[in-house]
Design a protein around this nucleic acid. Structure first.
Lengths: 210, 210
DNA sequence: CGTTGTGAAGAGCTTCACAGCG
DNA sequence: CGCTGTGAAGCTCTTCACAACG
């Protein structure tokens, strides 16, 4: 198969597969069938086989998939079989929480720079990282070889933070601020807005109550 | 139109429309066409008209949509035109950040209970809320009329937290822990795992670099 | 024999094109 | 005249069913 265009839904699911496979590996499971993995991920078995087929043939017919190998293969396919260096802009409550979040390093996303424009925050050390002035961002991005920016500013400062990051030459932005931001085509932007999910919940509950 | 089944993609987009319309309202914009709103939300104009048509006829032909009315209509359609009372389980870094997050109240999601099983955390007051023992959760959920639970525990304790919430009778769960949880059909579960979005970014950047 | 990999069928979402209406 | 609301077309993603094969 090895198609060129891959649905973004597939990418999202592959991330889930990796997570679930990780738990299986910790439970000493060596081999898994698409059916078993499907049940654990709450999707259709052929969906899994098709998702994997976009990237290659990772299974053994009549047997299934070797858990460890499959994790490696999916991670390589997603491009997360290496370290990604990131910078965080906006050291508020959420920014602090993310800087202290152990999972980032564990998953290969190293936060190597923390930036804020508030003079009272500059110089503070959080989780071993000194908060720097946002204006000096572009020097550091090149110096530290940063490819991904994380925005945790208030919404009204999100676009300015994005501009700083884009100027500095980052290739992707993860935006936690509840604001749309514009970026050139070659800079990828992903949004994290958990209020969308809260809205979904509110809607589902309301609908079910009718 | 007024269909019964509504695509979840539509719900996600409606949340975006509300956000963008809010910004327009702040900028004194009174009327907006589907084309203008579409540009701001980066979607197709007919997509917007179709999404809205699931819930009613909110526009005026030849004119467009009245911004204020449309916000009200969408919020009512989503069921977010009222206060939702929520409880948070797991007072770690992320839990603390969310408890201090002003936006929750602003958007109608009130966190009225904070729970943890760590005796050192119980009794601590965060953002005016005393952390209570998770074991007492179900008493409070009924007492405080809580409908939504927010899980911010470590992954290995997510299912236990979920069980407590489900027993207590919450109708929906927002899970920030990087773990799949199982719940009965009548309890809705939404996941927030920003590593999925980081994976998407990593993949897009890797692909573009080829 | 059992499970994968995959073409074909099916379902669902998105876009088009235009009738309907203020 | 201009923009909404919507049936129909188009397209993409998902599921099925089975051939391929270790």
């Amino acid at each position: 198969m090895k198609s060129d265009h891959i649905p973004s839904a597939t990418i999202q699911r592959l991330a889930v597969y990796v997570q679930v496979l990780g738990w299986m590996q910790r439970d000493q499971v060596k081999v898994v069938s698409s059916e078993a993995l499907a049940k654990a991920c709450d999707v259709n078995p052929s969906q899994i086989r098709k998702d994997l087929a976009y990237f290659g043939e990772f299974g053994v017919r009549g047997v299934g998939y070797y858990v460890e190998d499959l994790i490696t293969s999916i991670k390589r396919s997603l491009g997360v079989d290496r370290v990604w260096r990131t910078a965080l802009v906006g050291v508020g409550n959420l920014g602090r929480a993310l800087l202290n979040h152990k999972e980032f390093k564990a998953r290969g996303f190293h936060i190597v720079g923390a930036y804020d424009c508030d003079p009272f925050k500059i110089g503070e050390v959080i989780s071993g990282l000194e908060v720097m002035c946002t204006k000096t961002l572009s020097d550091w991005v090149k110096e530290l070889d940063i490819e991904i920016g994380i925005i945790t500013t208030p919404p009204e400062r999100a676009q300015r933070a994005a501009n700083h990051l884009i100027e500095s030459g980052v290739k992707g932005i993860l935006n936690f601020a509840p604001a749309r931001i514009t970026a050139p085509e070659n800079v990828f932007v992903e949004y994290v807005d958990f209020f969308h999910q809260l809205y979904s919940l509110a809607f589902s509950i309301t609908l079910a109550g009718q």
